[in-house]
Design a protein around this nucleic acid. Structure first.
Lengths: 208, 208
DNA sequence: ATGAGCATTGACCGAAACGGTTAACAGAGG
DNA sequence: CCTCTGTTAACCGTTTCGGTCAATGCTCAT
């Protein structure tokens, strides 16, 4: 990557990266044309090749950026330090949405890249992925106090259920392209409240 | 479409359709080559063009088949006649999985097709979609007896939550390509049991 | 054996798209 | 005026695309 790219104004950098995320998230690696990315970024193809020597380099730069930004934003959110499970999920989701605000197509790109099969890039994606696989979830769940929840509940199942619902919820927004972040956040807040209302032990029950 | 296609042996027809679903679900319409579909189906490109006069015709035939099969299988499952909400979801999911067994990439194709923007096909997709939008969900929810559930629960939220979780659950399997249907069905059964255990009023509570 | 009729394909076509290069242009600073 | 930097239109050789067609084999009644 040409270091001149990094000294570009922030918003121009983001425009180029977002263009890349968009095109690569909609097509396979081989069928994502550099010309299309350049057009989406509002620059000429030649200039795009000036910043990134070739397609592979751009693709892997996008992947690295994706990983770096995600890790950074997650750490910064403080979601891992939360002792309350729901508060942790809340901070995590908020971090995810902050990222999606800046790079709307990054989440879809990440999924596609993870399952990309083109030999020109698949090897390096898989290699770099090994380091990132999350072990936070299981650890997180071992910290919670079962007494806070309704008696007899399967906590593992509850966690998986919430995870799947979050994915399905996010997925619904990601699919339709244009996103209303306030609506998204508000909706997830309600989802959290719902979970709390059914999974947590009620105060009067606790008093009994 | 050449009527000779319909008199092909069932499994050959399915092989061709599945090849179409697979390729069109991975790429946009314009970037889904007929040659790739033919290869995936195990026939020559020329023969594919013998059955379907052109790409657009194949694409729309796939779309119509998708809609028809889905409606048929859902009706046949009896999920709409169930009075018990969870039993209805169970039958519905089983129908969805029967379809996925026959046409593994149909679900992904449907989503992609719905959001396809290529003017050559997007118009007809949207037009045909108008008829299919489901009104079953809301009606279904009005039939349930709130007394069956834990007191104070937001039934609409519960329904949306279950819907999102189902989507997220299915999505997890769809993504990784190779699917173990037994595992899939077993997992969903557990999810249903979990929902029943937390959302439904307990017998002893009812006895109080 | 023969030939009519059908399923199937390899080879081909013109057009378009691809990744990548290059020579030239525009504008700011001295 | 010249130079340096950011930027692009135009181009190149190659590949891929949708679609066609003549030719190949296959089946089966004569």
């Amino acid at each position: 990557m040409n270091p001149k790219f990094l000294s570009l104004p922030e918003e121009k950098q983001q425009a180029i990266l977002n263009a890349g995320y968009h095109v690569f998230s909609q097509n396979t690696y081989k069928k994502s044309p550099m010309s299309e990315i350049a057009e989406a970024a509002g620059i000429s193809k030649a200039l795009l090749f000036h910043y990134f020597h070739n397609k592979k380099e751009l693709y892997l730069f996008l992947w690295d950026t994706c990983a770096r930004v995600t890790v950074e934003e997650m750490e910064k959110s403080g979601c891992y330090e939360q002792t309350d499970l729901f508060a942790g999920m809340n901070y995590g989701m908020q971090a995810k949405m902050r990222i999606t605000r800046r790079y709307p197509d990054m989440a879809l790109f990440a999924v596609k890249a993870f399952y990309e099969k083109d030999p020109e890039v698949s090897g390096e994606i898989q290699k770099s992925m090994e380091g990132y696989l999350s072990v936070h979830a299981r650890r997180k769940l071992q910290e919670v106090d079962p007494d806070d929840f309704i008696p007899g509940i399967d906590l593992n199942m509850m966690y998986m259920e919430m995870y799947w619902a979050s994915e399905g919820y996010l997925w619904e927004f990601l699919q339709r392209g244009s996103m209303d972040f306030d609506e998204m956040e508000c909706g997830f807040q309600k989802l959290l409240d719902f979970w709390k209302s059914v999974y947590l032990k009620k105060p009067q029950e606790e008093a009994q």
